[in-house]
């Protein structure tokens, strides 16, 4: 009943509800992270000094996490490719891998935070660490959100009724779009905090 409007090409945008909704949500996310990056730039240019990432943070762990997140982006797009071919087992395998990699990202992040806390470094230590903890923390919350979505898709993949639903593939695609966006944010966060 709700999708009857799909039958009217003259009054339908041509992008499915789910995909358009996810893209609009990503638009708001773009504005959110644009604000955070703006704050970072304004504060950094206003600061009298700004540490070099290699001196202040654990760059090897950061690089490892970058590789993990990029890999998870590939595994989720593979899961989409498997779902596209209605390959149930392949989808579960790649989606499971994606979830493993996302947990690995969080574990590595935990080690990193632990190392900093052990050195007595907190968000209040300096403006640099305030930016570091806030930006990576908010990114981490987005990872957690992605884990919730992806694991619910994995759970759904065990029920046949969802594979019969034509909207299931759209959901997998939407979850993928979100996950790639989180990846892109990290692609910019990593050099901004660790390297430059």
């Amino acid at each position: 009943m709700i999708t009857t409007a799909m039958d009217n090409p003259d009054t339908h945008s041509g992008v499915s509800n789910a995909k358009l909704g996810v893209w609009l949500f990503l638009c708001s996310e773009i504005m959110l992270f644009a604000t955070l990056f703006t704050s970072y730039i304004v504060l950094r240019t206003g600061a009298s000094s700004w540490p070099w990432g290699w001196d202040a943070l654990n760059v090897p762990l950061g690089t490892l996490n970058t590789a993990i997140l990029i890999s998870s982006s590939v595994t989720i797009v593979m899961a989409y490719a498997r779902a596209y071919d209605k390959d149930v087992k392949g989808f579960r395998l790649w989606m499971g891998l994606t979830l493993l990699l996302s947990f690995a990202f969080l574990v590595v992040k935990g080690f990193e935070y632990h190392g900093e806390f052990a050195k007595g470094i907190w968000p209040s230590t300096s403006l640099f660490y305030a930016c570091y903890f806030t930006l990576t923390g908010l990114h981490g919350i987005h990872i957690l959100g992605g884990i919730v979505v992806n694991s619910s898709l994995l759970y759904m993949s065990f029920k046949k009724e969802h594979w019969d639903n034509p909207l299931f593939l759209g959901r997998v695609e939407g979850a993928g779009l979100y996950w790639h966006f989180v990846d892109i944010v990290w692609i910019f966060l990593f050099p901004a905090l660790y390297l430059l």
Binding site: N8, V15, L20
Partner: peptide, 9 residues
């Protein structure tokens, strides 16, 4: 964007 009735340009 997607749910307008037919003819509702």
């Amino acid at each position: 964007m997607n749910m307008r009735a037919p003819g509702m340009s």
